[in-house]
Amino acid sequence: MTWLTLRQFRLSAIAVGALLAAVAAVLLTVGRPVVTAAGPGLTTDDSTYYYLGIVALHVFPAIIGAFWGAPLVSREVENGTHRLVWNQSVTRTRWLIAKTAVVALAAVVATGLFSLLVSWWAGPVDAIATENGPAALRIEPMIFGARGVVPIAYAVFAFALGVAMSALLRRTVPAMAVTLVLFTVFQVTALSLVRPNLLPPEQQVQQFSADDTTFYFAGTGPPLELLMPVPEHSWVLEQQTLDRAGNPVASPAWMFECLFPGGLDNPQPPGPDFRERNEACFDRLAAEGYQGRVTHQPDSRFWTLQWTETALYLALAALLTWFALHWTRRIS
């Protein structure tokens, strides 16, 4: 089985291998960016490569799913060759397991190499990343999905999804399209609904202080949003104002009047008065029991989150493979 799988897989493997080689050649030719926290920032070119690398790592699993996964069963059915290969002395269950195992392994290797390559090149940039730039933290969503081991898990999942759609739809082009759509929808959903809750996020609750609270206006009047300084090196999920009972609420309406007695169009001149009045406002806020809460995933959890998410995607991939086997047995 392995020989046949490798023989049939040869062209697709060469195509993706060539793609990887081309990316490697470009990144090696360009060289790693020279940046320091103090010194010169990212050049325009380096910035382009940096973001292209992140985008490419997010797209790569989809390519694996659509081009390696989706044709796996359907191409045989379309060409009728399933009636040749399933009538040798190998059950179709073993046939599919052998094929998915070999190609999934190739997907792991290819994505792993790609991820390593991009992480290596972007290393200097990642090293100087802070909340305030010049690059995003590795814990933040877009970077998180393009570093570490999760791209490999995405690729295995996308591949299993492609195989399942292949066995279900039995036609290559629809299977490719459905795989791409489902994978994209799943990734977007998982990003907003799953990853923040993979581990219970940390919460930091404290009183607002006049010194470091920033204001955010949803419109031109009350209520205004009060934002506490966020914890360092964290992926901030939510910033809320809590009332005395601990329920999330909007900031009290009087706070706007208190801070901006003349309205936004009529700002008060800065001065000792201004500061005193501000502090009085915040004292009243504290007295009425209002507090701020920041919900976040700290950077220290990077690898825990990476492995947890990897385990989740691999479990889903196993489930999809089970479906693929089930659907393959129903093909005639």
Binding site: Q8, N79, G80, T81, H82, R83, L84, N87
Partner: peptide
């Protein structure tokens, strides 16, 4: 079993 269209792998 040799089915009606006598399938083989073209490549």
């Amino acid at each position: 079993f040799v089915s009606q269209d006598t399938p083989t792998y073209a490549g």
